[in-house]
Design a protein around this nucleic acid. Structure first.
Length: 429
RNA sequence: UCCUCGAUAGCUCAAUGGUAGAGCAACCGGCUGUUAACCGGUAGGUUGUAGGUUCGAGUCCUACUCGAGGAGCCA
């Protein structure tokens, strides 16, 4: 019978057994302090030479860092322990003696840590990030499921680009070309015409040679799409969505955020309404702040940082120039130069975590846009069918999971927000 | 693709052009309560690769390889 470390406080005074790994040991002549972890938590096991049998004492001294062990002992209350309990060890069984462990207690460089990502995952902070990621994903899905959305999985192999401009990973598909998806959105538009409210959640691939703290070549994106929602309904949905998921993480991951030393104030600020500014006003604000930008330019990373710093909470920027956005964005009927789209910029310099828009629902205009962007018509025939058979206004958005996790956890780089990051120069381990 | 920076012990880093060093990890010893434990000792090196300058190169020069940060693009 194995007890989880996290459950130890409810077993005080009992003789129990735990199974896990020894992540550190501190020893003196007559004492071993075994630092143990099992994935659910950590606890200190104390072996006293005068009280332990010889076998237990020597096994405790022989276990190397990260050896897997089964430890038996009595759970004791102890005020010196951070968790309030420790284990008075009566038996130590070494399941597998670990070789010299590469990751030491001192600091390491990022290159070494990424080379040893498979081992780095065992450290306290990385475990906390993975738990926050899992909770955040669950919060996303729960929110959408409860709001009447149906999960619809989009294909990973696709015959064509969703957005023409970005580069795709090309694969051989039985002699012809196929690409790894860069968005499930077009397929969600089809699904929304069937089920009304839908979303997909899956991996996304971009072959862009981006080398920044906000980019991965493989990342996860959640993409809701809603029939009959206009661009404004869409922003309302995003705001409720963000509030729900960040709120859930604040509630359920307090311990992990503490381990990550996350300042909670910027996260708690999401409870008040998010500012909504037009692209045109945003450009004016940037000029006031001394930024170099002209109307019609897309924002750079620094522009996004400056804009989000003005408000200290997520901020919507809407009505971008149609030119800088994808072909499927619906133009504003009052000003065709503008698109009915929005981005959500996270505070603290985390940049764009949501890209959103109302979709082009008019067949002829969509045809014209596809031609304008120099895209082939044939692969898009099925997409055009959606406009031929009962087209409706619809809109949706995509949120990058790693960017959201980076912001929530207060991490500098998205590569720590995914278990095994894929970047331009790294696809191992 | 472009710009900047970097590569020295297993790891993190030092070393004015003049004998390659420290801390951590490992190993041995010491310590009755440690919290990245502490104290003493041992071992550990073709300084990323290939050339060049020099009496002498970890250090200066050239090329290459690998990586990091940023730009563009995006989530």
């Amino acid at each position: 019978m194995t007890t989880l470390i996290k459950d130890l406080p409810s077993h005080i005074g009992e003789e129990i057994s735990i199974a896990g790994w020894m992540y550190n040991r501190r020893s003196s002549k007559k004492l071993h302090f075994l630092q143990l972890r099992d994935g659910s938590g950590t606890v200190q096991g104390v072996v006293v030479k005068s009280e332990a049998n010889e076998e237990t004492w020597s096994a405790a001294g022989e276990a190397t860092m990260e050896s897997s062990v089964r430890i038996g002992g009595e759970v004791r209350k102890d005020e010196r322990s951070p968790t309030g309990v420790e284990l008075a060890v009566t038996s130590v069984e070494i399941l597998a003696l670990a070789q010299e462990y590469p990751i030491s207690k001192k600091e390491h460089g990022i290159d070494f840590l990424l080379d040893n990502r498979h081992l780095w995952l065992r450290s306290r902070k990385q475990c906390a990030v993975l738990r926050v990621r899992a909770r955040l994903i669950k919060a996303c899905r729960d929110f959408l499921d409860d709001a009447g959305f149906t999960l619809v999985d989009a294909p990973i192999f696709t015959p064509n680009a969703c957005e023409g401009t970005t580069s795709l990973f090309e694969t051989d598909y039985f002699g012809s070309k196929a690409y790894l998806t860069q968005s499930g959105q077009l397929y969600m538009e089809a699904a929304a015409m069937a089920l009304g409210r839908v979303y997909c959640f899956g991996p996304t691939f971009r072959a862009e040679k981006s080398k920044t703290r906000r980019h991965l070549t493989e990342f996860w994106m959640i993409e809701p799409e809603v029939a009959f929602n206009d661009w404004k309904d869409n922003m309302d949905l995003q705001e409720r969505f963000m509030r729900a998921i960040v709120g859930r993480v604040l509630e359920e991951c307090a311990e992990d955020l503490k381990v990550l030393e996350r300042d909670l104030a910027p996260l708690e600020a999401i409870s008040s309404p998010f500012p909504r500014i037009t692209y045109t006003d945003a450009v004016a604000t940037l000029k006031e702040k001394g930024q170099e930008i002209e109307w019609g330019d897309d924002f750079g990373a620094e522009h996004e940082t400056v804009l989000s710093e003005v408000h200290g909470k997520p901020v919507f920027v809407h009505h971008y120039p149609a030119k800088v956005k994808a072909f499927y964005m619906k133009p504003d009927p009052d000003n065709e130069e503008l698109a009915l789209c929005n981005d959500l910029l996270a505070p603290e310099g985390y940049g764009e975590i949501i890209g959103a828009g109302q979709r082009m629902d008019d067949l002829d205009m969509l045809l014209a846009k596809i031609e304008e962007h120099g895209l082939p018509i044939e692969p898009f025939q099925w997409f055009l069918d959606l406009r031929r058979y009962g087209t409706v206004p619809h809109s949706g958005f995509g949120m990058g999971i790693e960017r959201a996790v980076a912001w929530v956890c207060g991490l500098k780089h998205v590569r720590e927000c995914i278990p095994f990051p894929r970047t331009m120069y790294r696809n191992t381990p």
